[in-house]
Each structure stands twice: as structure tokens, then as C-alpha cells.
Design a protein around this nucleic acid. Structure first.
Lengths: 193, 193
DNA sequence: GTCTATAGCTTGATAGAC
DNA sequence: GTCTATCAAGCTATAGAC
């Protein structure tokens, strides 16, 4: 029962614009134009431009990160198999939230101090869960890396970077990129399926 | 015989500011203040704010990329050994150009169309040289990846991402990060020294 | 090479009518 | 929920004195 309010529609439009041009380069006027209204009308739905950014990244981050972590804990699967599923899910799932995630990573610094701290905590929780999983895999002998924390950063860096270069349609579809990255990341972790 | 002109000094200061806050968020006033002059005085040295950005990324990219490629062609070394040196050089060399490289990757889109195309070509040339090297290594049987082009993107993504998270001083110094990343990237390429 | 002063424009945000 | 009109502030860039 998802009823998209007018505010939600505008948030979606803003997510795409912020993703394409960056938060500071999108004026309230150009955002309003994309939504088919006047700039002043935005302030019926939001109290500030920053609130729109906050709504985007909050919407994007919460469910996205929460939906990925269960892959790391699927029972009955090896560490390598769980990492494989996590990587594939990161790349191919959550299409509607893609813009939001990319905006989160690039434009977070433009949030108010309070909002920044809140989202930073969400990010950190996610990153630490991944790092803990990788460290456990190392302890279990399934992964082989010099430093599990740095490996975690590397893995997440690789995943978040994809949207910056992938072209759709391109030589490889999202599914094939997921296949390739799953192999590369398992190799990076010194593991195999 | 490097005589730093006043313009060069300002370019250096701008590189740091653009790196920290992003090009659109740094006003000519705040840049001028950091340089100890008035905003209007900037236009004695440059014709526009965009020219400053251009000077930064041109200075940063040219020598940096050119200095790294020879590591991929060092005679008498295996593909793995050459990649190892390339990775270490990328991370530890060129300290003075660090800001410029980071600005290049993040704020390139704010260049004029001509300048953008020029720098894009430099970047592409570098990326293709790396991809060619990796493909040759695969053909020689020293590397094992599903797709050399994607592997090249992954390797360069990892390297360019480091400056976004490394803290100096931090738990690991730049040298130790280089040690760790050299191992991770060789593993990612399915190689060993 | 730097200053002061300012033009011309765009920005985020507000007020009040409908 | 959207409009019009507008404010105050900030922006890049220019002109001319020193």
C-alpha cells in the first residue's frame, strides 16, 4: 500500500537531479522546474533544500543496507558463498534506491551536522558489520588477507564505485558486472567457491 | 629550477580547498581570503574560477599519470612484480599532487567542455594503458580474471578511493596501506609474486 | 600585484493571494 | 497545493586607482 505523496514524488525527482549534477549545483528553481512547479511551492512540502537531501539519503540508506546484511548470515553457506551472494545483491538489487545511495556517498557532507552524524552512524554500522564478517571468515580460514578492516573498505569501495562507470545499456549488463565482480572480490579475499 | 609564481601559490591553495569542500562550494571570496588577498585580485592571475580548476587538474594529472606508467613496463620483471610496483607507487608517490588528483576525479564535471574533453582524454589514455597491461598479463597466463577491462576499472577504482578514507596519522601509515593493497590487488588479479 | 567599489545575476527562503 | 512577488544574501567577474 505505497501511496506516493507529492512530497515523495519530488524527493524522487531530486534524487535523480542530485545524482546527475551534485547537490550544490542543483538550484531550488531547477528542481522545481523538473517537478513542474514554481520554486516557492517547494516550501509547502519541505522547510529547506537540505531537508530534501536528508529525505533522499535517509530513504536510500536505511532499507538498502538493512536488506543486504542478511546475506552475510545465511545459514548453511560457507563464508565465500555468503560473500558471493552479498556482492551480487549489492550490484543488482534495490534499483529504485540506486540514486539515493550514490547521493549519500557523494553529497553527505552537505547535510546539517545532526543529519550528517545520523547517517554517518548508519554507514559505520554497515561497514563494521561487513568488516566483522570478513574478519570471522579470516579466523575460520576461509579468507586470506593481511588486514580484514582494510579489505572491508576495499570491498565496499569497489561496490560503491560501480554506479560511477557502469553504462546501461553497455558492453556488460548489470548482471554480468555482478558475475565479474563476484569473482574479483572473492579472489581479492583469497577465497574460492 | 622551480620558481613558484604567485599564481602557482594560489593554485596550490585552491587545490587544498577544492579537495576539502568541493569546487562549487568554494567561493572566489573564500579562496582569496585563504590566499590573503581580496576576491577581485584573483582576476589579475586568472580569467575565471574555472581556469583555476583547470590549472589544478592539468598540473596534477599530466605528470602523475606519466610517472606511473613506466612501472608497468620495467624490463626483466614478471607481470605480477610490475603490478606490485605500480600499486605501491600510486599510493606512496607524488604526495604534492595528491589534492590535484582527488579534485580531478571528483570535480572534473565542472570544467568547460573543451577542458573537460582534454582531461578526459588524458584519463582515458592512462586507463587504457593499464587495461592493456592487465590483458597482456592474462594472455601470458600470469593473471586470471574474467574480464581484463573490468579488472582494470576495479584496480583503478580501489587506488583512487584511498585518499577518501585514509587518515594520516592513522592506524596504518601510507606505506602500510600500500603493502596491504599490493597484496589485495595481486590476489584480485589471480596472481602472486 | 593588490586594493576598493560595484555591476549583474543567482541563490535559498518567505508572505500572502487563490 | 500552487501561484506571484519579493527579500536579503551570496555569487562571479569587471573597472579603475594606487
Amino acid at each position: 500500500m505505497v501511496v506516493a505523496t507529492r512530497a515523495d514524488e519530488i524527493v524522487d525527482i531530486a534524487a535523480r537531479l542530485f545524482y546527475e549534477r551534485g547537490y550544490p549545483s542543483v538550484s531550488t528553481r531547477s528542481l522545481a522546474q523538473a517537478a513542474g512547479i514554481q520554486a516557492g511551492s517547494l516550501y509547502h512540502h519541505f522547510t529547506s533544500k537540505e531537508e530534501i537531501l536528508y529525505r533522499i539519503v535517509q530513504y536510500g540508506s536505511g532499507e538498502f543496507f538493512a536488506g543486504l546484511l542478511p546475506h552475510l548470515e545465511e545459514p548453511g553457506l560457507s563464508y565465500a558463498a555468503r560473500l558471493d551472494r552479498f556482492v551480487r545483491a549489492y550490484i543488482t538489487d534495490a534499483q529504485p534506491r540506486r540514486y539515493a545511495i550514490a547521493v549519500l556517498f557523494r553529497d553527505m557532507a552537505h547535510l546539517s551536522p545532526d543529519h550528517f552524524a545520523e547517517l554517518q552512524a548508519v554507514r559505520r554500522h554497515f561497514q563494521q558489520a561487513v568488516q566483522r564478517f570478513l574478519a570471522d571468515g579470516v579466523a575460520a580460514g576461509d579468507f586470506d588477507v593481511p588486514d580484514a578492516k582494510v579489505a572491508g573498505i576495499a570491498v565496499l569501495d569497489l561496490l560503491k564505485g560501480i554506479d560511477a562507470w557502469i553504462r546501461e545499456p553497455g558492453r556488460l549488463g548489470r548482471r554480468q558486472v555482478a558475475d565479474t565482480y563476484a569473482v574479483l572480490i572473492l579472489q581479492l579475499m583469497g577465497a574460492s567457491l
